Structures are given as C-alpha cells and as structure tokens.
Amino acid sequence: MFDDLPPDLDRLRTLRVWHALWVQRIDAKIAALQRRQAEEENGRRRRPGPRSGSSSSASAPTAPPSRSMPATATWRANGAGR
C-alpha cells in the first residue's frame, strides 16, 4: 500500500473526485485532438488533385482582379454632392 496518500477517508474521497475530474479533462482533450486529426486527414483525402489538361493557367495572361468602387466614391467622383 502507498504511504503517501492521506490517512483519512474524507481526504481520500476528495482526492478521488479530483482525480476523476482530471481524468475526464484528459479524456475530453484526447477526444478533441482525435476529432481534429481525423478532420485534417479527411480534408487531405477530399482535396482535389492537380488539374490535368492541355492548357496551363500559367501560359494564359489574365487581367488583374477589378476593384469595385464604393457608391459614395463614385458619387463624389462625378461631381455630385457639392
């Protein structure tokens, strides 16, 4: 028997509850990490592979993305609001 445990029943029961709570926290963390790892693996499997085909997007020039101007900026640019 271990001599480092409390000698009375009340403290032993308190220690038992504390221990059970810690085991529960550890189990919850393990389950969360297992779910996250499974989701990451599932994401890797579902990720589409590289495109295959005769045309390459690198060879075709593309225009830079257009930026839309807020309505208030267009309104002021046209001289309105003066």
Rank of each mutant, 00 (worst) to 15 (best):
S55H: 09
N78A: 15
R76F: 10
R46T: 02
T14F: 01
A77G: 05
G53S: 04
W18L: 13
A63S: 13
A77E: 09
K29D: 02
Q34T: 09
D10S: 06
M69D: 11
L5D: 00
S68G: 09
R46D: 05
V23A: 06
F2N: 14
A38T: 03
G43Q: 03
S54Q: 11
T72K: 10
L21M: 11
R67C: 02
E41P: 01
R51E: 08
K29S: 04
L21V: 07
V23S: 05
Q37D: 09
M1N: 11
P64S: 09
P65I: 06
S68C: 05
H19K: 08
Q34F: 06
R67N: 08
I30H: 07
A80M: 12
D10R: 13
R36L: 07
M1I: 12
A38P: 00
A63L: 14
E39D: 14
E41T: 06
M1P: 04
A20S: 12
P48Q: 11
A32L: 07
R16Q: 14
Q34P: 02
P6R: 02
A20C: 05
P48M: 04
G43T: 04
L33P: 01
G43C: 04
D8W: 00
T74Y: 08
P61L: 00
R35E: 10
V17S: 05
D27V: 06
I26G: 06
R36E: 14
G53Q: 03
S52E: 14
A80Y: 15
E39R: 13
P64L: 04
P70S: 11
V23T: 08
L12T: 03
L21Q: 14
P7F: 05
A31P: 01
R11M: 12
R36S: 05
A32T: 08
P65M: 04
V17K: 07
A71I: 07
K29E: 03
A20N: 12
G43E: 03
P7I: 06
A58H: 01
R67L: 10
R45L: 15
I30V: 15
R35V: 06
G49T: 07
W18M: 10
G81Q: 06
P50A: 11
R44F: 00
A20Y: 03
R45E: 13
S52N: 09
D10E: 15
D4F: 12
